[in-house]
């Protein structure tokens, strides 16, 4: 083949450019630490990367949702547990009074009234700006009472649900209906007890008090059963949270495998390309200089 000056120069230029381009892309991989820097680098990988990112973003969100649900349930649980304690105290007092001890009835009545208000207040607990036990009517205190200790429920039986996974949602609230009014109306039982304690006719009063012991036990069971329900939801949330953490770890690993460059081999590649580029520079410098003219002078 006849090799002319232009041919030499052209091939030097195109070789230099090609080596420089390879060097550039090797540098890019080392600098960004990613082997997929644009969709055309790995079209299938890119689709996977975007899918993994969506999964991670959604998983983070589910994690947030679950934390929020757990807070709600924890507060529900601690509130109901206090109410349970208070009701047990009331039942102890009622059992005491039903077996004849008549002296302290006004004091006991006052104590039960205080407990009534305490329970009412607890039933009106807010998480943030929302009342926890009013179903959907979170802007309204669920319970109020009149002077005769008749309680009114202002909430509804609405469920508060959160999303814990792809198309999976879980009920996290206990409404006032379930906790205080489903089997027995806790506030009515307390009211009847107060009436019994305050009955001037102590004999009738004792009968009234005795009649409330069984409903009080039912109230305790009622509270216990909603607590059990919440607890099982809580366990479910916790196990979902753990699964999510494992899942996230796996997806992160997959994302990293698809997207991240293996730094060691990327650097080796960079050095190889650097050497290649320098070699082509050195070769070019030697070839481009020499000509017959050097020897004719």
């Amino acid at each position: 083949m006849r090799v002319t000056n232009k041919l030499t120069v052209d091939s030097i230029i195109s070789n230099l450019l090609r080596n420089k381009e390879r060097l550039h892309s090797a540098q890019n991989i080392v600098a960004s630490q990613k082997k997929v820097n644009k969709p055309s680098d790995d079209p299938v990988g890119m689709a996977n990367i975007l899918g993994y990112r969506k999964t991670l973003s959604a998983s983070d969100q589910y994690g947030k949702n679950i934390t929020r649900g757990k807070t709600h349930i924890e507060l529900t649980e601690s509130t109901l547990s206090t109410i349970h304690e208070l009701l047990r105290e009331v039942r102890r007092l009622a059992v005491d009074q039903a077996t004849g001890n008549l002296d302290d009835r006004p004091t006991i009545a006052a104590e039960v009234k205080t407990i009534y208000d305490q329970i009412l207040q607890l039933a009106n607990t807010k998480l943030g700006n929302s009342y926890m036990f009013s179903g959907h009517r979170t802007d309204m205190a669920p319970f109020s009472r009149d002077a005769g200790y008749n309680a009114t429920y202002h909430g509804d039986d609405g469920d508060i649900r959160i999303i814990v996974g792809e198309k999976v949602d879980v009920k996290i609230n206990v409404n006032g209906e379930e906790a205080f009014r489903s089997v027995v109306n806790v506030f009515d039982v307390l009211r009847d007890l107060i009436n019994g304690l305050e009955n001037p006719d102590t004999t009738t009063g004792t009968t009234q008090i005795a009649a409330q012991i069984s409903p009080l036990t039912d109230s305790l069971n009622q509270i216990q059963s909603v607590r059990a329900m919440s607890a099982s939801t809580f366990t479910r949330l916790e196990s979902t949270e753990n699964q999510l953490a494992d899942f996230k770890l796996k997806v992160e690993q997959l994302l990293s495998d698809t997207e991240d460059a293996d730094i060691a081999s990327a650097i080796v590649e960079l050095q190889t390309q650097e050497t290649a580029y320098q070699t082509s520079l050195a070769t070019a410098a030697r070839i481009i200089q020499s000509s017959l003219l050097d020897f004719l002078r």
Binding site: N37, M46, L50, R53, S57, Q61, Y62, N65, R68, I163
Partner: peptide
């Protein structure tokens, strides 16, 4: 989308915002 500021990201954030509304 490699820059993490594309339509994919905007969609993810959009759905996450609905999740946040679910929570409150």
């Amino acid at each position: 989308e490699t820059s993490e500021h594309g339509l994919n990201q905007a969609m993810n954030e959009f759905w996450n915002a609905w999740n946040d509304l679910v929570n409150n």
